[in-house]
Design a protein around this nucleic acid. Structure first.
Length: 492
RNA sequence: GCGGGUGUAGCUUAGUGGUAAAGCGCCAGCCUUCCAAGCUGGCCAUGUGGGUUCGAUUCCCAUCACCCGCUCCA
C-alpha cells in the first residue's frame, strides 16, 4: 500500500523525481506559486491531452477554443465578477478571527449560511454601519470588529505602455467567460447545432484569501472547462450525462474507485444562477484525510448568455462614462431578450431561445496531483522495497525506456537504433548506465509502463524483451513488431 | 490575517558557540548477460538579511517559504 500519508510526502516525492518545484526557489520561493519539472510537465500535458481527447476529439458535438487571458473589462461587469467577486471581511479584535461581513449574524444561535451570494462592495459598505450588533462566530464577542476590509479577488494589470494612458485590466478568474463571449462566433463559423459544447483549457488567476495545500489552491492555476449548450428543458438530461462522463474519465485513467465520489451541493450553497451543482471529489491522504474538489459540474441555466446580452447593451454607457466601470450599472435586460444577439434559432422547431448551459469545470493542477498520489505505491520485492508510480499509460510521462542489457558486444548500438525509431512516436528514454535492475527500478519510480531490453539473443534473432512495470514480467517481441505492440498496449 | 510548528547536500536525517556527519541518490571509472550487488574516486548543504561574539549553523531580531489548525473557498 502507498505510504503517502502526509502532504510533506507528496511535496518530497514531487521534488525528488522532478515533478513539481517551488517557484523561484533559489530566491526563497514565492508564496502559492509552483513550477512543473521535466516529469511534471509531461504528466500534466498528458492529463490535459486526455481531457481534450475525451471532451473534444472523441465527440461530434464539442469544439474547442483558446481565448486570451485578458478580456474587455465589461466582460467581468456582465459576468458579475467585477462587482461580486470581492468580499468584505471584518476581523474580531478579541480573537483575531476574520469573517465575511455578509456571514455575520446578530445572535449566536443564528446559523450563518455557508454560501451566500456576494454583494457589490459599495452596497456592502453601505450596509455595514451596524457591525456593533454583530456577533463573532468564533468567540461570541459582540461588536468588536475592525472596519470591514475589501478583498479584491481578481488580479489587476495595466494594458498600454504609456503609463498615463493605460487601462486597468483583469486577468481572467475563469476561462468560461471566453467561451460565452465567443458563443456567436462559434455558431456562425462551425455549423454546430444545439446541443453542442465549447471547450477550453487555460490559466486562470484568483487572489485567494488564503492558499492551501501545495498546488491544491494556488492563485495561478489551470482549468479545463466545457460549456455545453442545450435547449431549456433538456438541461437535466445533459447534466446527468456530463456527471457520468466526467466521473468515468477519472476512473478510466486509473483513479481508484474508492477514492472518488460525488458531492451534490445543497440548495442553499448554490450560486444564485445555478440550478444544480455537483463536485467530483478525491480523497487526498493528507490533512484529515479530507475529500477535496477536483471538478465542479454545474447547471448554469441561461444566466451567462443573458448577462452578456446586458453587457453588450452597456457598451455606450461605458464609453460615455470615461470607460469607468465604477460609475455605471449593467443595462437592464431587453424585454425580448430571448431573441437577442446571443440567442439560438432552432431550425427544426422554428423557435428562438437562449440556451441553457451545463458546465463541467476541472482543475488541471488538482487532478494532476490526484493522479500522482493515486498512482504512488510501495511494495516489497525479494526483501527490497520497490517504489513505483502505477500511472495509466496515457498519462505516464515516459512511455518506454530502452536499455542494452550490458554496455558491450554491440548492444548499445542496437538499443540506440530502437530508441531513435520509437522516440518519433512515443516519449522514450534511453539508458545504458549501470546494472539493468537499477535502471528498471528508476523507471518504476518515474512511472514508465514499459522497459525494452536488448540482450545477447537480440543479436541472434532480432527479438527484444519488454518488461512490464506493474508485474515486472517480461515477454520477447520481434523488433519489427515493437512499435505496433507498444501502440496497442499504450492505447495510442 | 491569527495561533502553533518547521527550515542543515537532490532526498531522509545527525550534530555542534571553534575543521558540519551519515545513508540513499547523482556523476566518472572498474565489474556486471535481467530487477536498487560490489569496489574506487568525485560533486553538492546550515532559506535570506541583520545583531551579539575573537568566532554563529548553533543565541537574539527581522524577513521569506512551507506544514498543521482557525478562517476563506467565487
Amino acid at each position: 500500500m502507498a505510504k503517502i500519508t502526509k502532504l510533506d510526502d507528496i511535496v518530497s516525492l514531487c521534488k525528488r523525481r522532478g515533478f513539481i518545484f517551488q517557484s523561484s526557489e533559489i530566491y526563497g520561493g514565492l508564496a502559492s506559486c509552483y513550477d512543473y519539472g521535466p516529469l511534471g510537465v509531461e504528466l500534466k500535458n498528458n492529463v490535459k491531452k486526455a481531457w481534450w481527447k475525451a471532451v473534444v476529439q472523441m465527440r461530434d458535438d464539442v469544439v474547442g477554443v483558446d481565448c486570451s487571458i485578458l478580456m474587455h473589462p465589461l466582460v467581468w461587469k456582465a459576468s458579475g465578477h467585477a462587482d461580486k467577486f470581492a468580499d468584505l471581511i471584518a476581523e474580531c479584535k478579541k480573537c483575531n478571527v476574520r469573517t465575511r461581513v455578509d456571514h455575520l449574524k446578530e445572535k449566536v444561535a443564528e446559523q450563518a449560511e455557508e454560501h451566500t451570494e456576494h454583494i457589490a462592495i459599495d452596497a456592502a459598505m453601505a450596509g455595514t454601519g451596524n457591525l456593533g450588533k454583530k456577533v463573532c462566530p468564533n468567540c461570541g464577542a459582540v461588536g468588536q470588529f475592525t472596519e470591514p476590509m475589501p478583498f479584491k479577488l481578481m488580479f489587476e494589470t495595466q494594458m498600454g505602455a504609456n503609463v498615463d494612458d493605460s487601462m486597468t485590466m483583469q486577468l481572467r478568474p475563469e476561462t468560461a467567460q471566453g467561451i460565452f463571449v465567443n458563443f456567436r462566433n462559434v455558431l456562425d463559423t462551425t455549423r454546430v447545432k444545439i446541443p453542442f459544447g465549447i471547450a477550453q483549457i487555460g490559466k486562470s488567476f484568483r487572489n485567494e484569501v488564503t492558499t492551501k495545500a501545495f498546488i491544491f489552491r494556488t492563485r495561478e492555476f489551470e482549468q479545463a472547462e466545457l460549456e455545453f449548450f442545450c435547449e431549456p428543458g433538456t438541461d437535466e438530461k445533459w447534466y446527468e450525462h456530463w456527471k457520468e462522463q466526467r466521473f468515468n474519465w477519472y476512473l478510466n485513467l486509473g483513479i481508484k474507485k474508492e477514492n472518488l465520489r460525488f458531492r451534490e451541493h445543497e440548495a442553499n450553497e448554490l450560486a444564485h444562477y445555478a440550478k444544480g451543482c455537483v463536485d467530483v471529489e478525491y480523497k487526498f491522504p493528507f490533512g484529515s484525510g479530507d475529500w477535496q474538489e477536483l471538478e465542479g459540474i454545474a447547471n448554469r441555466t441561461d444566466y451567462d448568455l443573458r448577462q452578456h446580452q446586458r453587457g453588450m447593451r452597456t457598451l455606450n454607457k461605458w464609453f460615455e462614462n470615461d470607460r469607468k466601470l465604477a460609475n455605471i450599472g449593467l443595462a437592464d435586460e431587453a424585454e425580448d431578450y430571448q431573441s437577442g444577439p446571443l440567442s439560438y434559432f432552432d431550425e427544426e422547431k422554428k423557435r428562438r431561445y437562449i440556451p441553457y448551459v451545463i458546465e463541467p469545470s476541472a482543475g488541471m493542477d488538482r487532478s494532476t496531483m490526484a493522479f500522482l498520489v493515486d498512482a504512488y505505491d510501495e511494495e516489497e520485492v525479494r526483501g527490497e522495497q520497490r517504489n513505483l508510480l502505477r500511472f495509466h499509460p496515457a498519462i505516464a510521462p515516459i512511455k518506454a525506456a530502452i536499455f542494452p542489457l550490458v554496455k558491450k558486444d554491440g548492444m548499445p548500438e542496437v538499443a540506440r537504433k530502437i530508441y531513435d525509431d520509437l522516440k518519433r512516436y512515443f516519449n522514450c528514454f534511453y539508458d545504458e548506465k549501470g546494472a539493468v535492475g537499477r535502471r528498471y527500478r528508476r523507471q518504476d519510480e518515474a512511472g514508465t509502463p514499459f522497459c525494452i531490453t536488448v540482450d545477447g539473443q537480440t543479436l541472434q534473432d532480432q527479438t527484444v524483451t519488454i518488461r512490464e512495470r506493474d508485474s515486472m514480467e517480461q515477454i520477447r517481441v520481434s523488433t519489427d513488431q515493437l512499435r505496433n505492440h507498444l501502440r496497442e498496449k499504450l492505447d495510442m
